[in-house]
Structure formats: structure tokens, C-alpha cells
Design a binder for these strands. Sequence first.
DNA 1: TTGAAAGCGCTACCAC
DNA 2: GTGGTAGCGCTTTCAA
Lengths: 357, 357
Amino acid sequence: MNQSDRSARVRLVDVARAAGVSKTTVSDALNGTGRLPAATREHVQRVARSLGYRPNATARLLRAGHTRLIGVAAREHVETPWVYAELAYFVQLVTATTRAALVHGYGVVLLPTTGPGDCWLDMPLDGVFVVDPVEGDPMVGDFLAAGVPVVSDRRALKEVASGTKEAGRWVDFDYGSAARQVLDHLEDAGAERVAVVAAATTACFHQQSVDAYLDWCAERGREPRIAYLQGPGIQNVLDAVEGLIDDADALFTLVEGSPALLLDTIRKFGRSVPDDLLLVCTTEDPTALYTDPPVSTLSYLPDETAQAAVALLVDSIEGRAGDHGRLFSADFQIRASSVAPGRGPARRTAASPLTPG
Amino acid sequence: MNQSDRSARVRLVDVARAAGVSKTTVSDALNGTGRLPAATREHVQRVARSLGYRPNATARLLRAGHTRLIGVAAREHVETPWVYAELAYFVQLVTATTRAALVHGYGVVLLPTTGPGDCWLDMPLDGVFVVDPVEGDPMVGDFLAAGVPVVSDRRALKEVASGTKEAGRWVDFDYGSAARQVLDHLEDAGAERVAVVAAATTACFHQQSVDAYLDWCAERGREPRIAYLQGPGIQNVLDAVEGLIDDADALFTLVEGSPALLLDTIRKFGRSVPDDLLLVCTTEDPTALYTDPPVSTLSYLPDETAQAAVALLVDSIEGRAGDHGRLFSADFQIRASSVAPGRGPARRTAASPLTPG
DNA sequence: TTGAAAGCGCTACCAC
DNA sequence: GTGGTAGCGCTTTCAA
């Protein structure tokens, strides 16, 4: 009853009939294949156009054996679907993934992070990029078991029973050393009470970063000062900052928040950056460059990551060998917000040690 | 040669053979259709699982005659693909579209805004939502001609030769009156030299907003003060503000920019909001609420728009009659940034006239 | 040069 | 209850 246009839709065979040729000839004429006289080809093309013929995409995909579609899912906040899209990191990652996929001739499907069981398997995907899987994330296993190539992080791949033929490839960061790099920098800049704002999630990034922080504190016999956000949203971030700020001389945020707004808030509490509070934000928000003072940032390179992920995925899909994975180093940009002015330049160079040159 | 896993992939017929039943029985057992004894059903399911069988999504889609996939394209910056994703408006729109689509059982494909000819027609889509089409946008016409249901804005639909059977449905705003509402408010608040920051694009929103501004100025015999951004990026916005600010007592931005950063920049130029410069931003950035002062915003309701668009699209796809379109009113939230403190409350009520209640 | 026919993998109709 | 078989719309091999 519905799908009323089904009958109205002109098919290959309709064109063939109208042009007085066979389906083969139409297909060849339209796809530039076969060896047809130019006259036939043009005639068929004219008829096809006049009928408004459009090949059915699904049918060609079935025939072709692939869909040229890859899925992308950001899993960090599985329980609150899609709020993560408000975070600049994921937005840039998805954006860059789309751009990279296009270059390789693939389209991108936004995967639901929730839904009935393994509904994601119903989508006609050639491969998937699972970003920030949570602990024991079922999505990675589901796709791998279904024989769909996956790119994700190493932990997620390791968790999956390695019996599957396709092991999955990975894109990863050493989150722990990135965090230590920031913490060391803050210590060098004179901070003694570094506070951290983290999210309550089992995504690799947060777990490893927090672990690194706790270890770092333990090594120094310092008491950790950490606030776990219970959900996304600006108010949560500002509240967390408020709770930590009185007893801290440096703030390292693992969650995204507008740098300009963060500075405003800190100012409102009577503190001043960098004079009596150093600030480093994990963020992709480009406004960090333009604030007063400019804010030091730790970036997890969404563009580079996405490009590598897509390249890896496409290799996997198209049966090329290629690398098993790519390990990246986070990009730490030191700006005025984390350099105490009275103390002169920090002992470490301002250039990121992990990304020399 | 590639697609090496093709042969490895277990198909329905493999399961049937292994279970010693027919394809039909397997299909019925796995899909819960038909009337099979529980024993058979379970046996088949067990065999299927042990073989790691996964139905081929493309094949079921071909059979079903639909793909449960809708495309979404944001066309405002066709020439610079995907930079628009950095804008909160599009991000929220795509996010909300994805969420709404999921509710209706559809997945979302991010459409390339560029690429060889009508490459978008190769994707197996049931329908598309074309956001902010540019003037004479080919994408809308392509899809309509191909018989793919489209939701876009009224202008885009009107531009297409109306000979097609499916006319397309629309979601729209009266951009002109929204702009006038803001301008009138600024005038009421005492502004005499309202400057506008716009983008150089032929998207309906910008064209109509700018036209409304020019008309509004002409009616008052005022000289328009307007800056057209030549591209996205923060620096462009800040430069535009710098160019306008000296000769303005109110600023109305049509392009997105971090409210907090905008305030900082204005402060840097020695101006103060709202004391000697009123500010209204067209933005979805929720930080506008938390700045000091909070910034007045004009919102084009991405969530509501997306929900309506998806509902309209799904109606169209599934052959239901439903509405032809939905006209929305922008949401103007007046906050401290556009209320001159010395002059007392503005003459107009602070509640948005367009969204009473 | 052209066309008939065999599928791609699945679901559903309809006999058995 | 179960299983042939037709067919979704296309491409491609192969025979004419």
C-alpha cells in the first residue's frame, strides 16, 4: 500500500522496452561498458533521460558486493546518545572522517549508539570506525563477528575473542603519557596542587588519563584533586571547576568546555590565570588561541586520527595488507595560561616534546 | 581479488545446508516469521550462531524495497565542504536529525556537498534532508528527479520544475521577520547604529536576513553597516567585528562565533556590553547563557526543525499524506547583552513575541 | 553488435 | 509444518 512510488519508478527494463533494446544494451550504454555503436548508446541515453530513469542504488550494491558506506560511532557516552556531538572533538572527528571517506569514495553513516540489540548490523556497511568504545563495548565485537572490518582502539580489539579471521585495526594514543606531559609541565611551572576535571566514563581516554594522574600524584605523595562529571553540559563543568578551584593552583580539564567561558568563570571566582591558577584544557576548540590569555591545549588530533582510521579501514575493506594500526602522540600546545609570568619561562621548552620539528 | 572475505562469508543457504533444512525455514526461524515448532527454530538459531551467520544487509534491503536510510546535507558552504560542521547550528541539526531518524527506524548518511556530478545518487537512500540549499542548488533537483523524497526549504522546492510527481516537502523559517524582530528590539533598546555580520553565501537564511536588514535600514533612512565574511573561521569573525565596532552602538551577528570570545574581543577594543554596545548573536552555542553578561540569542531551533523534517520525510517515504511543510518562528531570547542598563527595561516585553506562552 | 540468462542473498508466496 | 521457487533490479558472462 505504501511505497506507492514503487510502481511509478522506472526500471532498467522499462528503458529497454521503450528503447527497443535489451537490458544488457541499456546497462552498457549507461555505464559506458561494452562495445556499442555511438548511435545506440546515445539513443538509449536519450530514452533513459526522457523517462527520468535512475538506477536503483541498492540493486547495484547487491550486485557489486559492497556498499561503499562506512559507519562511524562515538561511544563515549553510550547512555546519553548523541550529546557527545556537542563536543568539538567528536564533531571534528566525524567531520574529518566524512571528508577522508569521501576521498576514498566512501559515504559515512552515523551509527546509533543505542537501540534494540544489534540494530546496527542491519545497515549495509562495508566497515566501521568505532571511536572511544566503552569497556566491553559490544559494538566492536558484533561487527567483527559479522565479518565487518572495524577500526577502533587497541583495548577494544584486545577484548574481543581473537578467534575471528579479521582482527580489526586500530588507531590509538598513549593517553597516559600525554597526561603526564601536561602534569609535568604544570609542575615545572610551579604548580603544587594540580586539579583535574574528568568524566565518569569507561572510555579508554578517560580511564588512562585519570590513572596516569593518580599514579603521578602517588609518586609525589600528593593527594589527588579530581572531579568526575556525571553528565555533559556546561553547568556540570562549571560546577566541577567551582568545587576544585579553591584548593588548586593549576587546573587540567579532560572534558571539553569553552576556554573563554572557563576563563570567565575562573575570574568570577576571584582567581586569575595564569597568575594564581594555571590552566590546561583538553580541547579542540580553536577559540583557545584567541582568549586572553590564550589557553594551553592538549589536542587529540581528530583530523589526523580520522584520516588514518579511514585509510586503515579502506585497506581492510578492500583486502589490502597495510598496517595493523597507528599510534599517535597528542599535541600539547603551551600558551600563556599555563606559564606563570613571575617565574620566567618554564624549564621545559615550549615546543611539544612529543611532536618535535 | 579483493573482497577476499566474500567467499568466507556464510550465507543463508550455508546455514540451511548445515541445519539440514531449507532456506525458507532458516529465514523464518531467524526472523520469527512463519509457524515453526520451537525445536526447529532453536536448532536453526543454534546452527546459525555457531556458523557466525549474519544476514546480508544489502540483500534484505533490495528485497524490502527500501533502505531505511536518509541522507542529510548542509549546503550553505558548498565550496568549502564540511567546514560548516564547526558551526554549532549544523552540528545540532545533524545530531537532532540522527536522533529523530533513529526514532523512526532510519539511519542517517552524511552527504558529500561536493564530488563528481551527482555522485550522491549512488547512495541507497530512501529520502534526503537538504539543509540551507544555495541558490539553484542542483542536489534538490537531482533527488526529486530521481524520485527520492526530499525535505528542504520552500525556495529550493519552488526553483525545481514542478513537473515531478513528488513535489518535496519543506521546513522553513521566516528569516526576514526574525531579523526585523531583533533589529526592532535593538532600536527599542536605544541603538541607532546597528551593524550586522553576515556570511557571503546564497543560502536562504543569509539572503533573507540581509535583505530584511537593508530594507529596515532604508525605511529609517539609515546607512547599513554590514560585513560579509569571506569564509568560516574565528579570525574572520573577529576581523569583521573589529571593522564594524568603531562606528556601531549595536552588533547583530548572523554567523556563529563563541559568545564568550566575542565579548572578550569587544572588551579588548575598549567597548563594553551592554553599556555602550548592544549584542545579539545568531547562535546555538549554549555558553551564551553563562557569559557575563549573558548574551541575547536568536536560535533557529535545530532540534525542532530536525524533528519536523524527519517526520515530514518519513511520511513522504512511507506514502502517507501528511503536511506539505512546517513554518517555524525563530526563538529570540533577550538577555542582558542587549538591554541598555541605564535606559531601564526595553519597551518591548522580554518574552519572545513569536513564541508566546 | 546484441540479447538471453544466470546470478548477487534474501524473503514470501503457495503448493505439498 | 516445510520447502521449492519466483523475483527485488541490476551487471556480466557467454552464446548467437
